[in-house]
């Protein structure tokens, strides 16, 4: 697999995803500066977490208009896999690669903790290495992770099986208590219609290493490597 990570001014999980990908791929991904719209062809483009442009105006709004994102959109339309984590999900939503928006958390506070997620679909390239219904533990760290979409959009993504992850309790129940940020239908991650673009608020790259007390995130990266060889 060949992978690229887009780096914006204010990205701060770029190194973390680089480490996690390198661990699964056996070689480092390409790091692409946001002004670059002609990077080599890759199987996977990652839009990492952080505070691109300080999250000023709206989280992800300015990064969504960068040259590298314009190129990412073109490649996503052509079927290249795109993974947006945290700020990356916000950027993908602002780019309209994914429907809906990530609003301020319902508590109005930044929140950093491990949450339980239920894997809603076991589907390559992103979630093929998880079982459908599997409950995994992954950290979140965000201020704007409250997923919102209108009823029609929500009904469509639910109907098409495009919810990738949902916030649940340990037993896999999507309770109100298990919803950390007020997201509609406890949605933590969604894919686009074609299934090649995934946006998620939780950080799988932060729990892909036994020394950090868990490896539930690693299956995603290993799965990507298996999917793309």
């Amino acid at each position: 697999m060949k992978a690229a990570v887009i780096v914006f001014p204010g990205s701060n999980c770029d190194r973390d995803i680089e480490v996690a990908l390198t661990q699964s791929m056996g070689r480092p991904p390409l790091m692409v500066w946001h002004r670059d719209d002609s990077f080599p062809s890759v199987d996977l483009i990652v839009v990492p977490g952080g505070f691109s442009y300080g999250d000023y105006l709206r989280a992800g709004a300015m990064a969504a208009n960068s040259p590298a994102m314009a190129e990412t959109k073109r490649r996503a339309d052509a079927g290249v896999a795109v993974l947006g984590i945290c700020n990356g999900f916000q950027i993908l939503a602002e780019s309209r690669l994914l429907p809906g928006v990530l609003m301020r958390n319902a508590t109005l506070r930044f929140i950093c903790r491990d949450v339980h997620l239920r894997v809603e679909e076991s589907r390559p390239p992103f979630t093929g290495n998880y079982r459908k219904g599997q409950v995994i533990r992954i950290p979140i760290a965000h201020h704007d992770g409250n997923y919102f979409a209108d009823h029609e959009t929500l009904a469509r993504i639910e109907g098409e099986g495009r919810v990738a992850f949902r916030y649940t309790d340990q037993c896999g129940k999507p309770t109100a208590r298990a919803n950390p940020n007020g997201s509609s239908a406890n949605i933590a991650g969604i894919v686009n219609e074609a299934g090649n673009v995934l946006g998620m608020m939780p950080h799988p790259e932060r729990l892909a290493d036994q020394a950090l007390s868990g490896t539930d995130g690693r299956a995603m990266f290993d799965g990507l490597v298996e999917a793309f060889g």
Binding site: L57, R58, A61, M62, N65, E94, G100, V101, M103, F148, A149
Partner: peptide, 9 residues
């Protein structure tokens, strides 16, 4: 349309 507002919300 393109930056200052997110017309979804």
């Amino acid at each position: 349309q393109r930056l200052l507002a997110n017309t979804v919300i």
